[in-house]
């Protein structure tokens, strides 16, 4: 479970200090999913990095499974905007990065994950040789290789074409249902938020504050995009964003 209580995060010091997140509180149950949506540069990524243990809040507390987050943790996986792949490492090395950095061998989990994501055949290739969709799948493989209980995603499908984006959204949904990790997604795409978020938190301009939390009980099915409930959620999100 993720519990964020009255968290504020500030960048820099003195006159250069920027308040990125202010007094944000929310909770994601085990196996739940929460999508953050808000204007560009509002502090969404900062908030996510706070949960990942990459940034320390100046106020408030972040707990994952009841323990305060004071640094990166094995059970918290983060998928970055462009998958965060290292160009000088092969698909296999990138997928195994978290395990390798923690000196965890053998890496059978990564092999299974690569097979499931249909990447085993390209394990010897470098990221530059892959399509954008494949790169994102390698990023997912890296995150899944640690069998995390919390999956954080920072605009993981930005700059992908519509069809690839929807295909990978379907994959995220399947994996989320299969692995039952708690999912926190940051996106500026309303449809992505509505498709993957059980609840959707709409953030204000910087410093990020939660304007409203929209429930999205209908999500969880690949066909959800074609339903009236999906369109209704989209309308509701637009309304809150424009307010």
């Amino acid at each position: 479970m993720i519990e964020v209580a009255n968290v504020s995060i500030r960048y820099g010091r003195g006159i250069d200090a920027v308040d990125a997140v202010e007094d944000v509180s929310f909770r994601v149950e085990n196996g739940g999913s929460l999508a953050f949506i808000g204007p560009s540069g509002c502090g969404k990524t900062t908030l996510l990095f706070g949960i990942a243990g990459l940034l320390a809040p100046i106020e408030g507390e972040i707990l994952v499974d009841g323990t305060p987050v004071t640094g990166t943790r094995r059970e918290i996986a983060l998928i970055l905007q462009n998958a965060g792949l290292l160009p000088w490492k092969t698909v296999w090395q990138n997928a195994n990065l978290s395990l390798m950095l923690r000196h965890e061998y053998p890496q059978r989990t990564a092999e299974t994950v690569l097979r499931d994501l249909r990447l085993l055949d390209v394990r010897g290739r470098f990221p530059a040789e892959l399509s954008e969709g494949m790169k994102r799948r390698v990023g997912i493989a890296r995150a899944l290789s640690m069998s995390p209980s919390v999956m954080l995603m920072d605009e993981p499908l930005a700059s992908l074409d519509t069809l690839t984006r929807e295909r990978i959204q379907d994959l995220f949904l399947t994996l989320w249902k299969e692995h039952r990790f708690s999912l926190v997604l940051v996106t500026h795409d309303i449809e992505e938020a509505a498709f993957l978020g059980e609840t959707i938190a709409v953030l204000s301009e910087r410093p990020a504050q939660i304007k409203e939390i929209v429930d999205n009980p209908g999500m969880g099915d690949v066909d959800y995009r074609t339903t009236a409930a999906f369109r209704e959620t989209l309308g509701r999100l637009r309304e809150v964003l424009e307010r």
């Binding site: 990095f49 990459l54 970055l80 950095l101």
Partner: peptide, 16 residues
């Protein structure tokens, strides 16, 4: 910075 964030989030130490 993306590369550094990527390895830090994967649990890298400073030396790594």
């Amino acid at each position: 910075q993306e590369y550094i964030t990527s390895v830090l989030s994967a649990g890298a130490t400073r030396r790594q």
